[in-house]
Nucleic acid binder design. Structure first.
Length: 559
RNA sequence: UGGGGAUUGGUGUAACGGUAACACGCUUGACUCUGAAUCAAGUAUUAUAGGUUCAAAUCCUAUAUCCCCAGCCA
């Protein structure tokens, strides 16, 4: 864990923590046990991070523990790949479940016994209706349902059929086990919910041992109870399930009494956070994979260079409530910059190079100049940067016919090359199409290091890279994956994909970037934060832009 | 004419009958060898209508709007 963990980003107050404080004070519980319960059918995203930070954060705040439990009750969509990635992502985010790794599938035998218990108590029955028929009998939102003709099947017959369901005697969908509750309830979840279904599908963990699997409703709360979870925190859409959650716990021989609490899931502008949509982006090739740096997945954000601590800070800032809301992506950018600003070494990289020749600098010569690794933090040391007659500067740092507020290089103007010299643009070289291809400049040897002995000032300082020493690199500039802040609000969300979400530049970087470690994020001064992408091979370097620096000039330009 | 949840500046949150606050954003200025960072100032808020009260974002009543639920998904 990093030094930023001491920040109080997770120890705020929210209604969940209020409830826990009350429970503790009233003696309803003497400890706190939470859990993060993913289904292993996809990769974790930043919305999950909110839940992870909440559940692990709450446990830490109250001296309790948080379990990692896989709700692996539907083998149709679940895979080991997801089980592995989820553990990697939670660990990367900075949380430790210790010995408390569980699987709902570990409880299959007990769940089966509990189902038998319900049948024996006359509170569950085997239904032969088809899926379509069950839907018809269920009624609608405004009309009550009607009882299945099999609802009053004798206990012995139910027991026999349920055993035979387990034994694999029937085909998928032939029968289900239903809890017998209330077909007229206004809450549709109470209209005799299905709690077991026949699925002749191999399970990633139990293999072919089972041909029936419990539904979410008959596995989640039960696993909570078995694990001794005290506060089962989930998202708002499960609020309707709470009466069922409670009914099942009350009617089962559980030895603990967990309570469910619901909070609003995270929504973020300019992205999507639904597993279905993220899966579609991956499967249809709109992105390179689950870890595409444009994805809001934890693996994507990690590859992008976002520090885990920034995600934790973000989770702390957005709070926890029951009101649906959409957080502005700029808040997340702020957290990323806020963290990287203090931790990232400063380097120079020219994204879109424009050649500069210093006419009065001796040909074939070069020198090393000292540059600070972090101007605000001298303890981070210095480095040597080579300077020579031929350099590259940023194309955007030159304008032949500059507007009034443009401070950078233009014909006849003097600027500073960071940590180097003052240079003045003497001549502009263009190709036959009129495009600027080179600048002829002169430098003032007296300004070595970046200051003029006569005290004269310049209005701009540019970053640069020596042409003879610079490292060529592919730099990937990312923008929002979607060009609408609410993708899919009008029509297909895929229509809102941002065609410019990835722009690739052929850049040139200072030599100190040659052996940047994967995972380390540095600041390219005046540009943004960057990290090495795993696509790099040997001299074929690939960098990702994690996030750009705030750009006051870009704003001014728009006016 | 079903059930459940929600509504505070542009965005996210706080205030738990007693001065509507914090962060982000935005605007302006200072500083600057990063048009960054930092610093300073400014901007803007209780869905509506009634009621209770000395006092209401908070309590009551009604209304409006939004979200979730009719998987053998979770």
């Amino acid at each position: 864990m990093s030094e930023t963990d001491s920040e109080n980003t997770e120890t705020g107050s929210d209604f969940i923590r209020d409830v826990i404080r009350e429970d503790l004070a009233a003696g309803r519980t003497d400890g706190v046990v939470t859990r993060f319960p993913p289904e292993p059918n996809g990769y974790l995203h930043i919305g999950h991070a909110k839940s992870i930070c909440l559940n692990f954060g709450v446990a830490a705040d109250f001296g309790g523990r948080c379990h990692l439990r896989f709700d692996d009750t539907n083998p149709v969509n679940e895979e080991i790949e997801y089980i592995d990635s989820i553990q990697e992502d939670v660990r990367w985010l900075g949380f430790d479940w210790g010995d408390h790794l569980f699987y709902a599938s570990d409880n299959f035998e007990r769940l089966y016994e509990w189902a038998m218990h319900l049948i024996e108590a006359g509170k569950a029955y085997v239904d032969d209706l088809s899926a379509d028929e069950i839907r018809e009998y269920r009624g609608t939102l405004t009309e009550p349902g009607k009882p299945s003709p099999y609802r009053d099947r004798p206990v012995e017959e139910n027991l026999d059929l349920f055993r035979r369901m387990r034994d694999g005697e029937f085909e998928d969908g032939a029968r289900v086990l239903r809890a017998k509750i209330d077909m007229a309830s206004g809450n549709i979840n109470l209209r005799d919910p299905v709690i077991y279904r026949i699925l002749h599908t191999d399970h990633p963990r139990t293999g072919d041992a089972w041909s029936i699997y419990p539904t979410y409703d008959f596995a989640h709360g039960q696993s909570d109870a078995i694990e001794g979870v005290t506060h089962s925190v989930c998202t708002l859409e499960f609020a309707d399930h709470r009466p069922l959650y409670d009914w099942l716990i009350e009617n089962l021989p559980a030895n603990s009494r967990p309570r469910q609490y619901e909070f609003a899931r995270l929504n973020l502008t300019y992205t999507v956070l639904s597993k279905r949509r993220l899966m579609q982006l991956v499967q249809e090739g709109h992105v390179s994979g689950w870890d595409d740096p444009r994805m809001p997945t934890l693996s994507g954000l990690r590859r992008r260079g976002i520090p885990a601590a920034a995600i934790r800070e973000f989770a702390g800032l957005i709070g926890v409530t029951k009101a649906d809301s959409t957080v502005d992506w700029v808040l997340f950018d702020h957290c990323t910059r806020d963290l990287l600003n203090t931790t990232a070494l400063r380097r120079m990289g020219v994204l879109r190079p424009l050649k500069v020749v210093i006419e009065n600098y001796p040909e074939g010569e070069s020198e090393m100049l000292e540059a600070q690794n972090h101007p605000q933090n001298p303890e981070m040391g210095t480095r040597q940067v080579p300077f020579g007659r031929e350099l590259y500067v940023e194309r955007d740092d030159f304008m032949e016919d500059p507007p009034r507020k443009f401070f950078r290089l233009s014909p006849g103007r003097e600027v500073r090359l960071r940590y180097a010299y003052f240079v003045t643009c003497q001549e502009v070289v263009k190709d036959e199409s009129g495009e600027v291809v080179e600048l002829r400049c002169t430098y003032d040897p007296e300004t070595k290091g970046g200051n003029a002995p006569d005290g004269r000032k310049v209005k701009a300082t540019l970053h640069w890279v020596s042409a003879a020493h610079g490292l060529p690199a592919e730099v990937r500039l990312y923008d929002h994956l979607f060009q609408r802040e609410d993708p899919g609000a009008e029509g297909d969300f895929l229509d809102d994909l941002n065609p410019n979400s990835l722009v690739v530049e052929s850049s040139v970087l200072e030599p100190a970037l040659a052996d940047l470690e994967p995972g380390e994020v540095v600041q390219f001064e005046r540009q943004g934060y960057f990290c090495v992408d795993p696509d790099s091979t040997g001299d074929a370097r690939v960098f990702n832009r994690t996030v750009a620096l705030r750009d006051g000039w870009a704003k001014a330009k728009k006016k």
